[in-house]
Nucleic acid binder design. Structure first.
Lengths: 221, 221
DNA sequence: GGACTGACCATAACGACGTTGTGGAACCAT
DNA sequence: ATGGTTCCACAACGTCGTTATGGTCAGTCC
Protein backbone atom coordinates (compact mmCIF):
# COMPACT_ATOMS: atom_id res chain seq x y z
CA UNK A 1 0.00 0.00 0.00
CA UNK A 2 1.69 3.15 -1.15
CA UNK A 3 -0.25 5.48 1.05
CA UNK A 4 0.39 8.83 2.56
CA UNK A 5 1.94 8.24 5.96
CA UNK A 6 1.00 10.28 8.97
CA UNK A 7 4.31 11.50 10.32
CA UNK A 8 3.29 15.00 11.38
CA UNK A 9 2.59 13.85 14.90
CA UNK A 10 5.05 16.29 16.36
CA UNK A 11 4.19 18.98 13.91
CA UNK A 12 1.11 21.07 14.24
CA UNK A 13 -1.80 18.76 13.47
CA UNK A 14 -4.44 21.47 13.78
CA UNK A 15 -2.80 23.29 10.93
CA UNK A 16 -4.60 23.37 7.63
CA UNK A 17 -4.00 20.70 5.02
CA UNK A 18 -2.72 22.59 1.99
CA UNK A 19 -2.05 19.42 0.06
CA UNK A 20 -5.22 19.37 -2.01
CA UNK A 21 -6.98 22.61 -1.42
CA UNK A 22 -8.55 23.57 -4.71
CA UNK A 23 -9.03 20.43 -6.77
CA UNK A 24 -12.43 19.02 -6.12
CA UNK A 25 -12.88 15.51 -4.92
CA UNK A 26 -15.43 14.61 -7.55
CA UNK A 27 -13.05 15.01 -10.48
CA UNK A 28 -10.34 13.16 -8.60
CA UNK A 29 -12.64 10.22 -8.02
CA UNK A 30 -13.51 10.04 -11.71
CA UNK A 31 -9.91 10.11 -12.84
CA UNK A 32 -8.88 7.55 -10.25
CA UNK A 33 -11.70 5.23 -11.26
CA UNK A 34 -10.85 5.71 -14.93
CA UNK A 35 -7.23 4.87 -14.31
CA UNK A 36 -8.12 1.71 -12.38
CA UNK A 37 -10.55 0.68 -15.10
CA UNK A 38 -7.91 1.27 -17.74
CA UNK A 39 -5.25 -0.71 -15.92
CA UNK A 40 -7.11 -3.58 -14.30
CA UNK A 41 -10.43 -3.83 -16.04
CA UNK A 42 -13.90 -3.61 -14.54
CA UNK A 43 -13.11 -6.16 -11.86
CA UNK A 44 -10.22 -4.16 -10.45
CA UNK A 45 -12.29 -1.12 -9.64
CA UNK A 46 -13.83 -0.95 -6.19
CA UNK A 47 -15.31 1.93 -4.25
CA UNK A 48 -12.92 1.36 -1.40
CA UNK A 49 -9.80 1.40 -3.52
CA UNK A 50 -10.89 4.41 -5.53
CA UNK A 51 -11.59 6.34 -2.36
CA UNK A 52 -8.30 5.26 -0.84
CA UNK A 53 -6.41 6.37 -3.92
CA UNK A 54 -7.92 9.82 -3.68
CA UNK A 55 -7.19 9.85 0.03
CA UNK A 56 -10.76 10.00 1.25
CA UNK A 57 -13.35 7.57 2.50
CA UNK A 58 -15.98 5.64 0.60
CA UNK A 59 -18.60 8.16 1.65
CA UNK A 60 -17.22 10.65 -0.84
CA UNK A 61 -18.39 8.40 -3.65
CA UNK A 62 -21.91 8.35 -2.26
CA UNK A 63 -22.18 12.06 -1.63
CA UNK A 64 -20.89 12.95 -5.09
CA UNK A 65 -22.39 10.20 -7.23
CA UNK A 66 -24.82 8.14 -5.21
CA UNK A 67 -23.11 4.82 -5.66
CA UNK A 68 -20.70 2.78 -7.70
CA UNK A 69 -22.88 2.50 -10.84
CA UNK A 70 -23.18 6.26 -11.07
CA UNK A 71 -19.42 6.62 -10.65
CA UNK A 72 -18.85 4.23 -13.55
CA UNK A 73 -21.44 6.10 -15.55
CA UNK A 74 -19.51 9.33 -14.99
CA UNK A 75 -16.33 7.63 -16.17
CA UNK A 76 -18.07 6.43 -19.31
CA UNK A 77 -19.50 9.85 -20.06
CA UNK A 78 -15.94 11.12 -19.87
CA UNK A 79 -15.08 8.37 -22.35
CA UNK A 80 -17.83 9.48 -24.71
CA UNK A 81 -16.48 13.01 -24.62
CA UNK A 82 -13.04 11.72 -25.47
CA UNK A 83 -14.46 9.74 -28.36
CA UNK A 84 -16.37 12.78 -29.58
CA UNK A 85 -13.26 14.94 -29.60
CA UNK A 86 -11.33 12.19 -31.36
CA UNK A 87 -13.94 11.97 -34.10
CA UNK A 88 -14.18 15.74 -34.18
CA UNK A 89 -10.53 15.94 -35.10
CA UNK A 90 -11.37 14.22 -38.38
CA UNK A 91 -12.09 17.37 -40.34
CA UNK A 92 -14.57 17.07 -43.22
CA UNK A 93 -12.72 17.16 -46.50
CA UNK A 94 -13.84 17.17 -50.11
CA UNK A 95 -13.86 13.36 -50.07
CA UNK A 96 -16.64 12.18 -47.74
CA UNK A 97 -15.77 8.52 -48.29
CA UNK A 98 -12.23 9.17 -47.16
CA UNK A 99 -13.72 10.96 -44.17
CA UNK A 100 -15.72 7.86 -43.33
CA UNK A 101 -12.55 5.80 -43.38
CA UNK A 102 -10.88 8.35 -41.15
CA UNK A 103 -13.75 8.22 -38.69
CA UNK A 104 -13.55 4.44 -38.64
CA UNK A 105 -9.84 4.55 -37.89
CA UNK A 106 -10.38 7.14 -35.16
CA UNK A 107 -13.11 4.99 -33.63
CA UNK A 108 -10.81 2.00 -33.55
CA UNK A 109 -7.95 4.06 -32.18
CA UNK A 110 -10.15 5.16 -29.31
CA UNK A 111 -11.09 1.58 -28.51
CA UNK A 112 -7.52 0.32 -28.61
CA UNK A 113 -6.31 3.19 -26.45
CA UNK A 114 -8.50 2.06 -23.54
CA UNK A 115 -10.14 -1.30 -24.25
CA UNK A 116 -11.74 -1.69 -20.85
CA UNK A 117 -13.34 1.73 -21.00
CA UNK A 118 -14.61 1.01 -24.50
CA UNK A 119 -16.20 -2.23 -23.36
CA UNK A 120 -17.88 -0.66 -20.36
CA UNK A 121 -19.08 2.32 -22.39
CA UNK A 122 -21.37 0.10 -24.44
CA UNK A 123 -22.51 -2.22 -21.69
CA UNK A 124 -26.15 -2.37 -20.75
CA UNK A 125 -25.96 -1.01 -17.20
CA UNK A 126 -24.23 2.10 -18.48
CA UNK A 127 -26.23 2.83 -21.61
CA UNK A 128 -29.47 2.27 -19.77
CA UNK A 129 -28.54 4.89 -17.21
CA UNK A 130 -27.91 7.65 -19.74
CA UNK A 131 -31.04 9.59 -18.94
CA UNK A 132 -29.62 13.09 -18.73
CA UNK A 133 -30.13 14.87 -22.07
CA UNK A 134 -26.59 16.22 -21.98
CA UNK A 135 -25.19 12.73 -21.53
CA UNK A 136 -27.36 11.37 -24.29
CA UNK A 137 -26.19 14.15 -26.54
CA UNK A 138 -22.57 13.37 -25.75
CA UNK A 139 -23.12 9.73 -26.67
CA UNK A 140 -25.22 10.50 -29.74
CA UNK A 141 -22.94 13.18 -31.12
CA UNK A 142 -20.40 10.51 -31.93
CA UNK A 143 -23.01 8.90 -34.15
CA UNK A 144 -24.20 12.14 -35.71
CA UNK A 145 -20.73 12.80 -37.04
CA UNK A 146 -21.06 9.56 -38.96
CA UNK A 147 -24.50 10.48 -40.26
CA UNK A 148 -23.15 13.79 -41.46
CA UNK A 149 -20.33 12.16 -43.41
CA UNK A 150 -22.76 9.73 -45.02
CA UNK A 151 -25.09 12.58 -45.94
CA UNK A 152 -22.23 14.45 -47.53
CA UNK A 153 -21.38 11.33 -49.54
CA UNK A 154 -24.97 11.19 -50.74
CA UNK A 155 -25.02 14.88 -51.59
CA UNK A 156 -21.77 14.54 -53.48
CA UNK A 157 -23.27 11.81 -55.62
CA UNK A 158 -20.97 9.13 -54.27
CA UNK A 159 -23.78 7.19 -52.59
CA UNK A 160 -27.21 6.62 -54.04
CA UNK A 161 -29.93 8.67 -52.34
CA UNK A 162 -31.13 6.89 -49.23
CA UNK A 163 -31.62 7.46 -45.56
CA UNK A 164 -28.29 8.63 -44.19
CA UNK A 165 -28.98 7.51 -40.64
CA UNK A 166 -29.66 3.94 -41.69
CA UNK A 167 -26.54 3.75 -43.77
CA UNK A 168 -24.55 5.33 -40.95
CA UNK A 169 -25.88 2.66 -38.64
CA UNK A 170 -24.53 0.02 -41.00
CA UNK A 171 -21.14 1.70 -40.98
CA UNK A 172 -21.16 2.03 -37.23
CA UNK A 173 -22.18 -1.61 -36.86
CA UNK A 174 -19.33 -2.79 -39.02
CA UNK A 175 -16.69 -0.73 -37.29
CA UNK A 176 -18.03 -1.35 -33.81
CA UNK A 177 -18.33 -5.07 -34.48
CA UNK A 178 -14.85 -5.39 -35.87
CA UNK A 179 -13.34 -3.53 -32.94
CA UNK A 180 -15.39 -5.55 -30.48
CA UNK A 181 -14.25 -8.80 -32.05
CA UNK A 182 -10.67 -7.57 -32.05
CA UNK A 183 -10.85 -6.72 -28.37
CA UNK A 184 -12.85 -9.76 -27.32
CA UNK A 185 -11.69 -12.64 -29.41
CA UNK A 186 -8.36 -11.18 -30.33
CA UNK A 187 -7.50 -11.23 -34.00
CA UNK A 188 -4.24 -12.52 -35.36
CA UNK A 189 -2.61 -9.13 -35.67
CA UNK A 190 -3.35 -5.46 -35.66
CA UNK A 191 -2.29 -5.27 -39.29
CA UNK A 192 -4.98 -7.78 -40.16
CA UNK A 193 -7.50 -5.65 -38.29
CA UNK A 194 -6.51 -2.42 -40.01
CA UNK A 195 -6.69 -4.06 -43.43
CA UNK A 196 -10.08 -5.58 -42.69
CA UNK A 197 -11.31 -2.24 -41.38
CA UNK A 198 -10.38 -0.54 -44.64
CA UNK A 199 -11.90 -3.32 -46.71
CA UNK A 200 -15.07 -3.14 -44.67
CA UNK A 201 -15.52 0.58 -45.22
CA UNK A 202 -14.62 0.24 -48.89
CA UNK A 203 -17.08 -2.60 -49.44
CA UNK A 204 -19.85 -0.78 -47.63
CA UNK A 205 -19.16 2.33 -49.67
CA UNK A 206 -19.43 0.36 -52.90
CA UNK A 207 -22.58 -1.27 -51.61
CA UNK A 208 -23.96 2.17 -50.86
CA UNK A 209 -23.47 3.19 -54.46
CA UNK A 210 -19.94 4.45 -54.73
CA UNK A 211 -17.85 3.61 -57.77
CA UNK A 212 -15.49 0.76 -57.08
CA UNK A 213 -12.38 2.58 -58.26
CA UNK A 214 -13.26 5.80 -56.52
CA UNK A 215 -13.89 3.92 -53.29
CA UNK A 216 -10.54 2.19 -53.61
CA UNK A 217 -8.91 5.56 -54.13
CA UNK A 218 -10.63 7.11 -51.12
CA UNK A 219 -9.99 4.22 -48.75
CA UNK A 220 -6.39 3.12 -48.95
CA UNK A 221 -5.62 -0.47 -48.20
CA UNK B 1 -33.64 -28.85 -22.27
CA UNK B 2 -30.65 -29.55 -24.43
CA UNK B 3 -31.11 -32.73 -26.37
CA UNK B 4 -27.86 -34.38 -25.58
CA UNK B 5 -27.81 -36.61 -28.65
CA UNK B 6 -24.92 -39.00 -28.70
CA UNK B 7 -25.66 -41.33 -31.60
CA UNK B 8 -22.22 -41.91 -33.05
CA UNK B 9 -20.95 -43.26 -29.75
CA UNK B 10 -20.41 -46.89 -30.50
CA UNK B 11 -18.04 -47.29 -27.59
CA UNK B 12 -19.26 -47.79 -24.06
CA UNK B 13 -20.56 -44.68 -22.32
CA UNK B 14 -19.60 -45.58 -18.73
CA UNK B 15 -15.99 -44.98 -19.66
CA UNK B 16 -15.96 -41.27 -19.03
CA UNK B 17 -19.17 -39.59 -18.01
CA UNK B 18 -21.32 -41.95 -16.00
CA UNK B 19 -24.92 -40.92 -16.19
CA UNK B 20 -25.62 -43.29 -13.34
CA UNK B 21 -26.05 -40.78 -10.52
CA UNK B 22 -29.69 -39.88 -10.45
CA UNK B 23 -28.81 -36.56 -11.99
CA UNK B 24 -25.49 -35.03 -12.86
CA UNK B 25 -24.74 -32.18 -10.47
CA UNK B 26 -22.37 -30.60 -12.94
CA UNK B 27 -25.01 -30.30 -15.64
CA UNK B 28 -27.53 -29.02 -13.12
CA UNK B 29 -25.16 -26.28 -12.03
CA UNK B 30 -24.63 -25.19 -15.61
CA UNK B 31 -28.32 -25.04 -16.43
CA UNK B 32 -29.09 -23.22 -13.19
CA UNK B 33 -26.37 -20.68 -13.85
CA UNK B 34 -27.54 -20.27 -17.43
CA UNK B 35 -31.10 -19.67 -16.30
CA UNK B 36 -30.01 -17.07 -13.75
CA UNK B 37 -27.82 -15.36 -16.33
CA UNK B 38 -30.70 -15.33 -18.79
CA UNK B 39 -33.17 -13.88 -16.32
CA UNK B 40 -31.16 -11.48 -14.22
CA UNK B 41 -27.97 -10.76 -16.13
CA UNK B 42 -24.40 -11.29 -15.03
CA UNK B 43 -24.93 -9.49 -11.75
CA UNK B 44 -27.68 -11.81 -10.64
CA UNK B 45 -25.56 -14.93 -10.77
CA UNK B 46 -23.73 -15.91 -7.61
CA UNK B 47 -22.10 -19.15 -6.56
CA UNK B 48 -24.22 -19.30 -3.47
CA UNK B 49 -27.54 -18.90 -5.25
CA UNK B 50 -26.64 -21.31 -8.03
CA UNK B 51 -25.66 -23.93 -5.49
CA UNK B 52 -28.80 -23.30 -3.47
CA UNK B 53 -30.97 -23.67 -6.56
CA UNK B 54 -29.46 -27.06 -7.32
CA UNK B 55 -29.83 -28.01 -3.67
CA UNK B 56 -26.16 -28.38 -2.85
CA UNK B 57 -23.45 -26.29 -1.25
CA UNK B 58 -21.02 -23.91 -2.87
CA UNK B 59 -18.32 -26.55 -2.70
CA UNK B 60 -19.95 -28.39 -5.60
CA UNK B 61 -19.02 -25.49 -7.86
CA UNK B 62 -15.40 -25.72 -6.82
CA UNK B 63 -15.09 -29.48 -7.18
CA UNK B 64 -16.70 -29.49 -10.63
CA UNK B 65 -15.38 -26.28 -12.13
CA UNK B 66 -12.76 -24.76 -9.87
CA UNK B 67 -14.48 -21.45 -9.32
CA UNK B 68 -17.05 -19.02 -10.58
CA UNK B 69 -15.17 -17.94 -13.74
CA UNK B 70 -14.93 -21.54 -14.92
CA UNK B 71 -18.62 -22.05 -14.27
CA UNK B 72 -19.44 -19.05 -16.43
CA UNK B 73 -17.04 -20.34 -19.05
CA UNK B 74 -18.94 -23.63 -19.13
CA UNK B 75 -22.21 -21.76 -19.57
CA UNK B 76 -20.75 -19.80 -22.47
CA UNK B 77 -19.43 -22.92 -24.15
CA UNK B 78 -22.95 -24.26 -23.98
CA UNK B 79 -24.02 -21.01 -25.60
CA UNK B 80 -21.51 -21.46 -28.40
CA UNK B 81 -22.89 -24.94 -29.05
CA UNK B 82 -26.39 -23.54 -29.25
CA UNK B 83 -25.22 -20.89 -31.67
CA UNK B 84 -23.46 -23.51 -33.77
CA UNK B 85 -26.58 -25.64 -34.04
CA UNK B 86 -28.64 -22.57 -34.89
CA UNK B 87 -26.30 -21.64 -37.72
CA UNK B 88 -26.09 -25.29 -38.73
CA UNK B 89 -29.82 -25.31 -39.33
CA UNK B 90 -29.28 -22.82 -42.16
CA UNK B 91 -28.79 -25.39 -44.89
CA UNK B 92 -26.60 -24.37 -47.82
CA UNK B 93 -28.75 -23.67 -50.83
CA UNK B 94 -27.97 -22.79 -54.42
CA UNK B 95 -27.92 -19.11 -53.46
CA UNK B 96 -24.93 -18.50 -51.20
CA UNK B 97 -25.78 -14.83 -50.74
CA UNK B 98 -29.20 -15.77 -49.48
CA UNK B 99 -27.47 -18.23 -47.18
CA UNK B 100 -25.36 -15.40 -45.77
CA UNK B 101 -28.50 -13.42 -45.03
CA UNK B 102 -29.98 -16.48 -43.36
CA UNK B 103 -26.89 -16.90 -41.22
CA UNK B 104 -27.05 -13.25 -40.22
CA UNK B 105 -30.68 -13.60 -39.19
CA UNK B 106 -29.91 -16.76 -37.23
CA UNK B 107 -27.02 -15.02 -35.48
CA UNK B 108 -29.30 -12.17 -34.48
CA UNK B 109 -32.03 -14.55 -33.38
CA UNK B 110 -29.57 -16.29 -31.09
CA UNK B 111 -28.52 -12.98 -29.53
CA UNK B 112 -32.08 -11.79 -28.99
CA UNK B 113 -33.11 -15.12 -27.50
CA UNK B 114 -30.65 -14.69 -24.63
CA UNK B 115 -29.05 -11.25 -24.62
CA UNK B 116 -27.14 -11.67 -21.39
CA UNK B 117 -25.59 -14.92 -22.53
CA UNK B 118 -24.63 -13.36 -25.84
CA UNK B 119 -22.93 -10.46 -24.09
CA UNK B 120 -20.99 -12.69 -21.72
CA UNK B 121 -20.01 -15.06 -24.52
CA UNK B 122 -17.89 -12.39 -26.17
CA UNK B 123 -16.49 -10.79 -23.04
CA UNK B 124 -12.79 -10.82 -22.41
CA UNK B 125 -12.66 -13.00 -19.29
CA UNK B 126 -14.53 -15.72 -21.14
CA UNK B 127 -12.84 -15.66 -24.51
CA UNK B 128 -9.43 -15.50 -22.90
CA UNK B 129 -10.13 -18.68 -20.97
CA UNK B 130 -11.00 -20.73 -24.04
CA UNK B 131 -7.81 -22.75 -24.03
CA UNK B 132 -9.24 -26.22 -24.55
CA UNK B 133 -9.06 -27.13 -28.27
CA UNK B 134 -12.59 -28.50 -28.19
CA UNK B 135 -13.93 -25.26 -26.79
CA UNK B 136 -12.00 -23.22 -29.31
CA UNK B 137 -13.41 -25.40 -32.06
CA UNK B 138 -16.94 -24.90 -30.78
CA UNK B 139 -16.44 -21.15 -30.84
CA UNK B 140 -14.64 -21.13 -34.17
CA UNK B 141 -17.07 -23.43 -35.93
CA UNK B 142 -19.65 -20.67 -35.87
CA UNK B 143 -17.23 -18.55 -37.86
CA UNK B 144 -16.23 -21.31 -40.25
CA UNK B 145 -19.83 -21.66 -41.39
CA UNK B 146 -19.64 -18.05 -42.47
CA UNK B 147 -16.35 -18.58 -44.25
CA UNK B 148 -17.86 -21.51 -46.10
CA UNK B 149 -20.81 -19.49 -47.33
CA UNK B 150 -18.52 -16.71 -48.51
CA UNK B 151 -16.32 -19.22 -50.31
CA UNK B 152 -19.36 -20.68 -52.05
CA UNK B 153 -20.35 -17.18 -53.13
CA UNK B 154 -16.88 -16.71 -54.60
CA UNK B 155 -16.96 -20.08 -56.33
CA UNK B 156 -20.39 -19.31 -57.75
CA UNK B 157 -19.05 -16.12 -59.31
CA UNK B 158 -21.18 -13.89 -57.13
CA UNK B 159 -18.21 -12.39 -55.29
CA UNK B 160 -14.92 -11.44 -56.88
CA UNK B 161 -12.09 -13.80 -56.00
CA UNK B 162 -10.57 -12.82 -52.67
CA UNK B 163 -9.74 -14.26 -49.30
CA UNK B 164 -12.94 -15.79 -47.97
CA UNK B 165 -11.92 -15.55 -44.33
CA UNK B 166 -11.28 -11.83 -44.52
CA UNK B 167 -14.59 -11.16 -46.20
CA UNK B 168 -16.31 -13.42 -43.69
CA UNK B 169 -14.75 -11.39 -40.91
CA UNK B 170 -16.28 -8.25 -42.42
CA UNK B 171 -19.68 -9.93 -42.51
CA UNK B 172 -19.31 -11.17 -38.97
CA UNK B 173 -18.22 -7.73 -37.82
CA UNK B 174 -21.24 -6.08 -39.34
CA UNK B 175 -23.74 -8.53 -37.95
CA UNK B 176 -22.07 -8.75 -34.56
CA UNK B 177 -21.81 -5.01 -34.32
CA UNK B 178 -25.39 -4.37 -35.27
CA UNK B 179 -26.63 -6.92 -32.76
CA UNK B 180 -24.35 -5.54 -30.07
CA UNK B 181 -25.60 -2.02 -30.68
CA UNK B 182 -29.17 -3.25 -30.67
CA UNK B 183 -28.66 -4.97 -27.33
CA UNK B 184 -26.54 -2.26 -25.77
CA UNK B 185 -27.86 1.05 -26.97
CA UNK B 186 -31.26 -0.18 -27.93
CA UNK B 187 -32.46 0.75 -31.38
CA UNK B 188 -35.80 2.29 -32.07
CA UNK B 189 -37.50 -0.94 -33.03
CA UNK B 190 -36.83 -4.49 -34.00
CA UNK B 191 -38.22 -3.80 -37.44
CA UNK B 192 -35.58 -1.12 -37.90
CA UNK B 193 -32.93 -3.63 -36.86
CA UNK B 194 -34.11 -6.34 -39.23
CA UNK B 195 -34.23 -3.92 -42.12
CA UNK B 196 -30.77 -2.59 -41.34
CA UNK B 197 -29.47 -6.14 -41.01
CA UNK B 198 -30.70 -7.00 -44.50
CA UNK B 199 -29.37 -3.78 -45.94
CA UNK B 200 -26.02 -4.40 -44.31
CA UNK B 201 -25.66 -7.88 -45.81
CA UNK B 202 -26.89 -6.65 -49.17
CA UNK B 203 -24.46 -3.74 -49.25
CA UNK B 204 -21.55 -5.92 -48.20
CA UNK B 205 -22.48 -8.44 -50.87
CA UNK B 206 -22.49 -5.74 -53.52
CA UNK B 207 -19.21 -4.43 -52.16
CA UNK B 208 -17.79 -7.94 -52.41
CA UNK B 209 -18.64 -8.03 -56.10
CA UNK B 210 -22.20 -9.24 -56.33
CA UNK B 211 -24.54 -7.71 -58.89
CA UNK B 212 -26.81 -5.14 -57.28
CA UNK B 213 -30.03 -6.66 -58.60
CA UNK B 214 -29.03 -10.21 -57.79
CA UNK B 215 -28.07 -9.15 -54.27
CA UNK B 216 -31.42 -7.44 -53.83
CA UNK B 217 -33.15 -10.59 -55.01
CA UNK B 218 -31.16 -12.81 -52.66
CA UNK B 219 -31.53 -10.60 -49.59
CA UNK B 220 -35.14 -9.52 -49.19
CA UNK B 221 -35.79 -6.24 -47.52
C1' DG C 1 -21.24 37.50 18.07
C1' DG C 2 -24.15 33.36 17.98
C1' DA C 3 -27.27 29.98 16.40
C1' DC C 4 -28.85 27.51 12.20
C1' DT C 5 -28.29 25.03 7.99
C1' DG C 6 -26.50 22.37 4.58
C1' DA C 7 -22.61 20.16 2.22
C1' DC C 8 -19.03 17.12 2.95
C1' DC C 9 -16.69 13.19 4.79
C1' DA C 10 -14.53 9.88 8.71
C1' DT C 11 -15.92 5.84 11.21
C1' DA C 12 -18.09 1.74 11.90
C1' DA C 13 -21.25 -1.55 10.91
C1' DC C 14 -24.34 -4.84 8.00
C1' DG C 15 -25.29 -8.21 4.65
C1' DA C 16 -23.70 -10.63 0.61
C1' DC C 17 -20.13 -12.20 -2.01
C1' DG C 18 -16.00 -15.59 -3.73
C1' DT C 19 -13.03 -18.59 -1.86
C1' DT C 20 -10.72 -21.99 1.27
C1' DG C 21 -9.81 -25.40 5.14
C1' DT C 22 -11.64 -29.12 7.45
C1' DG C 23 -13.80 -33.12 7.72
C1' DG C 24 -17.30 -36.62 6.76
C1' DA C 25 -19.92 -39.85 3.71
C1' DA C 26 -20.12 -42.80 -0.27
C1' DC C 27 -17.85 -45.54 -3.56
C1' DC C 28 -14.32 -48.78 -5.57
C1' DA C 29 -10.43 -51.87 -5.95
C1' DT C 30 -7.84 -54.59 -3.22
C1' DA D 1 -12.09 -54.83 6.27
C1' DT D 2 -8.74 -51.32 4.16
C1' DG D 3 -6.87 -47.63 1.96
C1' DG D 4 -7.71 -44.23 -1.61
C1' DT D 5 -10.54 -41.29 -4.16
C1' DT D 6 -14.50 -38.48 -5.25
C1' DC D 7 -17.85 -35.45 -3.83
C1' DC D 8 -19.93 -32.27 -0.87
C1' DA D 9 -21.70 -30.08 3.93
C1' DC D 10 -20.13 -26.75 7.25
C1' DA D 11 -17.85 -22.89 8.94
C1' DA D 12 -14.75 -19.39 8.45
C1' DC D 13 -11.96 -15.43 6.25
C1' DG D 14 -11.37 -11.36 3.67
C1' DT D 15 -13.50 -8.15 0.52
C1' DC D 16 -17.14 -6.00 -1.47
C1' DG D 17 -21.24 -2.21 -1.95
C1' DT D 18 -24.02 0.19 0.91
C1' DT D 19 -25.96 2.54 4.99
C1' DA D 20 -26.35 4.83 9.60
C1' DT D 21 -24.32 7.91 12.60
C1' DG D 22 -21.96 11.74 13.86
C1' DG D 23 -18.60 15.43 13.35
C1' DT D 24 -16.35 19.34 10.89
C1' DC D 25 -16.61 23.55 8.42
C1' DA D 26 -18.52 27.38 5.27
C1' DG D 27 -22.07 30.32 4.63
C1' DT D 28 -26.28 32.90 6.32
C1' DC D 29 -29.53 35.17 8.98
C1' DC D 30 -30.88 37.11 13.81
Amino acid sequence: MSTRSDPPAEAEPPAETPIDPSVDTRAELITAAARMLCEGGPGAISVRKVAAEVGTSTMAVYTHFGGKPELLRAVCIEGFRHLATRLGRVRPSTDPVADLAGLARAYRRHALADPHLFTVMFSRPVTDALTDPDDQMAALSTFLVLVDAVQRAIDAGRFTPQRADELALEMWSGVHGLVSIELGAGLQSTRQATRTLSALVRHLAVGAGDDRDRAAASVPV
